[in-house]
Each structure stands twice: as structure tokens, then as C-alpha cells.
């Protein structure tokens, strides 16, 4: 930039009022009427509720267990560890399955991210033998009815370790489905209700 230009500085009028408009009607008086209806809340589709899966409480997340009897379901559970499958068995299949079927109470749990899960609460050993894995798991479930807890296996101690949350994680977001619906979704295609079920045929050596 040359000095000559610098010397030619012109000040524009900075304090002038804006030019008068041809008409005096106030813009602000009609602006509000131009606002469109808020359509952001028009329903664009509602996500279907998450389906529950069956398994153990998530060892990384704090969980709650639904305390209501409506969300307790007594049944036989079969763990096919070879194939990584868990089956639900009808009571009349007990004689076919023998000790492979374990009586459990299916409970509804939810973690603090709102993910539902079905867990199996074991019955105490009818023989009265002390099983720390079972009793500590039952303790965890009992506590999770009222508090957020994280449950993790402690192999050295032979039991589950229960860690209550230090913060209030708020109310659990229970799924809206009934227990029947949750179980049907979680065990779809994995219910043993006939002696001809492939799993029974397999353990009996039938082809």
C-alpha cells in the first residue's frame, strides 16, 4: 500500500441513521406471523423396543434386576456348552434331559445403557451343599433389585464379586414388553418341548 493512498484516507459517515424506508410499517410487528409451525416433532418413526438376549450379567456395566414377580419365570435351562447354545426346556422334558437340565428362575435385567438381558437365577442346591458361585450370584441379583451393581467372576475366590455403583445412575429403563414376549424373543427356536428335539435325540444317541 502506498503512502499516497494512506494519505488519502476518507472517513465514511459512521453515525448516519439508515436511510428512511419508503413505508413505515414495522418489520418486527409481522415477523412473528411468518414463523412456520414446528414440524420437527412430526413422528418420523419410532424405534422398536430392543429384544433381550439370554446370558450372564454384563461384567463391564452396572445392572439392575426387575424385582416384580411378573418378571420371574421358573423353568428348566439346558446349557449346551459344546455348541454354545442355551435352551429352555418344558417341564415334561425333565425326565428326558436328566441332570443336563437345571431348574432356574429367568429374571429381567437391564444395564445403565438401557440394554435388556434375561438372566438365569439358580435354585439353591437341593442337597444343601454350599456353592459360592450360586449363592454369590443370587446375592448379586437380590442387591440389583434395589441398587446398580456390577458383577464379575473372581476365579481365585471361587465366587462372584459384587460392586455397587458409587453414583446414582438414575432409574433403570425397563423394556415395555411382557416377560412372555421377552422370553419368546430371547429363546426363539431354542425351546425343547418334544422328545424329538434334535438336542434330546443327540444326547440319547438317536440319529
Amino acid at each position: 500500500m502506498s503512502d499516497q493512498t494512506l494519505n488519502q484516507l476518507q472517513e465514511t459517515s459512521l453515525v448516519d441513521k439508515p436511510e428512511p424506508t419508503a413505508a413505515t410499517k414495522s418489520t418486527s410487528s409481522i415477523l412473528s406471523s411468518l414463523r412456520l409451525p414446528d414440524t420437527y416433532n412430526v413422528s418420523g418413526g419410532v424405534a422398536l423396543p430392543l429384544k433381550a438376549t439370554y446370558g450372564k450379567l454384563n461384567k463391564h456395566r452396572f445392572c439392575r434386576v426387575h424385582p416384580s414377580d411378573d418378571y420371574k419365570f421358573r423353568c428348566l435351562v439346558v446349557d449346551d456348552k459344546d455348541n454354545g447354545e442355551t435352551y429352555l426346556a418344558a417341564p415334561n422334558m425333565a425326565s428326558q434331559l436328566g441332570s443336563l437340565a437345571t431348574p432356574k428362575t429367568i429374571r429381567l435385567a437391564v444395564d445403565n445403557a438401557g440394554t435388556p438381558k434375561l438372566i438365569g437365577e439358580p435354585d439353591l442346591d437341593p442337597s444343601g451343599r454350599r456353592n459360592l458361585w450360586q449363592s454369590s450370584y443370587k446375592d448379586a441379583i437380590k442387591q440389583a433389585e434395589n441398587d446398580w451393581v456390577r458383577v464379575q467372576a473372581n476365579m481365585a475366590a471361587g465366587q462372584y464379586e459384587i460392586t455397587p455403583s458409587m453414583s446414582d445412575l438414575g432409574f433403570p429403563r425397563w423394556p415395555k414388553q411382557s416377560m412372555d414376549e421377552l422370553i419368546n424373543d430371547a429363546f426363539a427356536g431354542r425351546i425343547i418341548d418334544s422328545p424329538d428335539h434334535p438336542y434330546i435325540r443327540q444326547i440319547q444317541g438317536r440319529i
Binding site: L34, L36, V42, G44
Partner: peptide, 21 residues
């Protein structure tokens, strides 16, 4: 929830607008 709904509406109609159009 509002944001999810807005997203679903927008991708359903392929259009979204402000309150002044």
C-alpha cells in the same frame, strides 16, 4: 428422542427446513 425422531422424519421425506422456511 427428539433428535432421533427428527432424523427419521428427515430421511423419510428427504427434506428438512427451519422455522422460517
Amino acid at each position: 428422542d427428539w433428535s432421533d425422531n427428527l432424523y427419521n422424519t428427515t430421511v423419510a421425506f428427504n427434506q428438512v427446513a427451519t422455522l422460517f422456511g
